[in-house]
Computed example of a mutant assay.
Amino acid sequence: MKKLSFVLAAAGLITLAACNKSPEAAAADNAADNTAAAIENQADNLEAAADNATNEASEQALENAADNAHAAADAVQDNAH
């Protein structure tokens, strides 16, 4: 629930920040935000899979993939703004 609240608050702030931007810049920011959110969702799914892994090697591989996905989402956000 905390993640959902955070996402909604972030979306609201992004919407307010977009008021002073050109339509093209706002669209690019929205696309980047949507992409980052999708990657974050994938990372969350990988973390959930890691929690359900049957052995340590699988769990570690999934956790590493989740960490990489979080880093990729951060990179998308950083490059968009």
Rank of each mutant, 00 (worst) to 15 (best):
M1I: 08
M1C: 07
K3D: 13
K3Y: 11
L4D: 09
L4F: 00
S5C: 11
F6G: 02
F6Q: 12
V7K: 14
V7H: 13
L8Q: 15
L8G: 10
A10F: 09
A11W: 06
A11Q: 12
A11N: 12
G12F: 06
L13R: 14
L13W: 11
L13C: 14
I14M: 14
I14Q: 12
T15E: 10
T15K: 13
T15V: 05
A17M: 09
A17N: 12
A17C: 07
A18V: 00
A18W: 02
C19Y: 15
C19A: 15
C19V: 15
K21E: 14
K21T: 10
S22E: 11
P23Y: 12
P23L: 12
E24W: 08
A25H: 06
A25N: 15
A26K: 15
A27E: 11
A27R: 12
A27W: 01
A27N: 10
A28Y: 04
A28T: 06
A28E: 11
D29I: 12
D29Y: 04
D29N: 07
D29Q: 10
N30M: 07
A31D: 09
A31P: 03
A32D: 06
A32F: 05
D33T: 06
D33S: 13
N34Q: 12
N34P: 00
N34W: 06
T35M: 11
T35C: 05
T35I: 02
T35D: 09
A36Q: 02
A36G: 03
A36P: 08
A37D: 13
A37T: 14
A37C: 05
A37G: 03
E40V: 10
E40G: 03
E40C: 02
N41S: 10
N41G: 08
N41T: 08
Q42W: 00
Q42S: 07
Q42N: 02
Q42R: 08
Q42H: 04
A43V: 05
D44N: 14
D44K: 12
D44P: 02
N45W: 00
N45K: 09
A48I: 07
A49P: 02
A49Q: 14
A49T: 12
A49Y: 04
N52Y: 00
N52F: 02
A53C: 07
T54I: 04
T54M: 11
N55V: 07
N55E: 09
N55K: 03
E56D: 15
E56W: 05
A57V: 04
A57L: 02
S58P: 08
S58K: 15
S58H: 10
S58V: 13
E59V: 00
Q60S: 06
A61Y: 03
A61L: 01
A61I: 03
L62V: 05
L62Q: 07
L62N: 11
E63T: 02
E63C: 04
N64D: 13
A65N: 02
A66R: 00
A66D: 00
D67W: 03
N68Y: 05
N68W: 00
A69I: 03
A69C: 00
A71E: 03
A72I: 00
A72W: 00
A72M: 11
A72C: 01
A72F: 00
A73E: 01
D74K: 14
A75N: 11
V76H: 08
Q77R: 13
Q77K: 12
D78E: 14
N79W: 01
N79R: 12
A80W: 01
A80Q: 06
H81G: 10
H81M: 09
H81K: 08
H81Q: 07
